[in-house]
Amino acid sequence: MSSVVSIVLGMVIAVHQFKSVIDAVDTGNRFAEGKTVTLRLDPDDEKAIWLEDRIGPSRPTCEISGPGDPALTSPGIDVFLTRDETWNPLYTIEVSQAGDYRITCDSERPSEFAIGDLGGLVALGGRLVLAVLLPLFGVGAGIAVVLITAFRRRGHHKRLLAERYGSGAM
Rank of each mutant, 00 (worst) to 15 (best):
V122S: 11
L121V: 08
E163K: 05
I77Y: 11
R154D: 02
S74Q: 07
V146T: 09
G56H: 05
F113H: 09
G56L: 13
D42Q: 10
D117R: 12
E108T: 15
N88L: 07
D100I: 01
V37Q: 05
F31L: 08
N88P: 00
S65G: 06
R153M: 13
L130E: 00
G125M: 09
R59H: 09
L81T: 13
V139W: 05
V145K: 11
V79T: 14
A141F: 14
S96T: 15
C105N: 07
T92M: 03
S111F: 08
A141P: 00
C62I: 07
F113E: 01
P89A: 12
K158G: 04
I148K: 01
I148E: 03
R109F: 08
R59N: 15
G76F: 15
I115K: 02
A150Q: 06
F137Y: 14
Y101S: 11
E33F: 08
A150L: 14
R54M: 07
L51K: 06
G120A: 10
E63N: 12
G34V: 06
T92K: 07
P60W: 03
T104K: 08
L136F: 06
G34D: 02
G142R: 00
G68K: 13
A98Q: 14
V139S: 05
D78A: 02
S107I: 10
V132P: 13
G68A: 04
T36M: 03
I49W: 02
R54E: 12
P67W: 03
K47N: 02
R59M: 14
L39C: 04
